[in-house]
């Protein structure tokens, strides 16, 4: 018997009471989605910018390696997206469109088609996610409703910059991934 069969038959051999899968009810929702979302991002050590603030910030940057895969800011790239992510090791900034944001925790949903390369939001030194302010949902329950049964090979929630507190519980930003997260709310 294969291990697969052994495991499955061992489980089937255990007498268990049947337990019903519960429905997930609707919970009361927060009213002010934008404010709560901004607070959440700040709590996660990210920053929320308006389009104008973002453009000013971009203009203030000097000579930087930038890749924008955002449909809203298609002309900001200073280098071309390679096919091998290893070549992105010295990338300064990636600009990516987010699909929607979750107010309660600042999480932003992105899928493979937003990222182009799965490694992009991680390997870049700094990350900008562009988000439509109308595309905010109150909590993770509505988030999964929005995702529905869509099929993407890879999807993720990003809620802040890379961080760690593994040394004496002192929060440090920029463990392995992006050292900063800026969310441009349009």
């Amino acid at each position: 018997m294969s291990s697969r069969e052994q495991i499955l038959s061992a489980i089937k051999g255990i007498e268990r009471e049947s337990k019903q899968l519960p429905d997930i009810p609707e919970f009361p929702q927060t009213e002010n989605l934008q404010k709560v979302f901004k607070d959440s991002i700040q709590g996660n050590k990210g920053e929320v910018l308006s389009a104008i603030e973002f453009e000013e910030w971009i203009a203030s940057l000097g000579d930087q390696k930038i890749i924008s895969v955002s449909s809203r800011f298609p002309n900001l790239s200073t280098i071309k997206l390679p096919s091998d992510p290893h070549q992105l090791n010295d990338l300064n900034l990636a600009i990516i469109d987010g699909q929607f944001g979750v107010s309660e925790n600042g999480a932003i949903w992105l899928e493979e088609e937003n990222l182009k390369l799965r490694a992009l939001p991680f390997i870049t030194e700094h990350l900008v996610i562009v988000l439509d302010s109308q595309k905010l949902v109150p909590s993770m329950h509505q988030a999964y409703e929005s995702i529905g049964s869509k099929h993407s090979g890879f999807g993720l929630f990003i809620a802040g910059p890379s961080k760690t507190a593994d040394i004496e519980q002192s929060l440090v930003i920029g463990a392995h991934g992006a050292k900063s997260l800026r969310v441009v709310l349009l």
Binding site: V102, N105, G106, A159, S162
Partner: peptide, 9 residues
């Protein structure tokens, strides 16, 4: 914290 910063599917 309200969520981990990276939640990959």
């Amino acid at each position: 914290q309200p969520i981990t910063n990276y939640n990959s599917h």
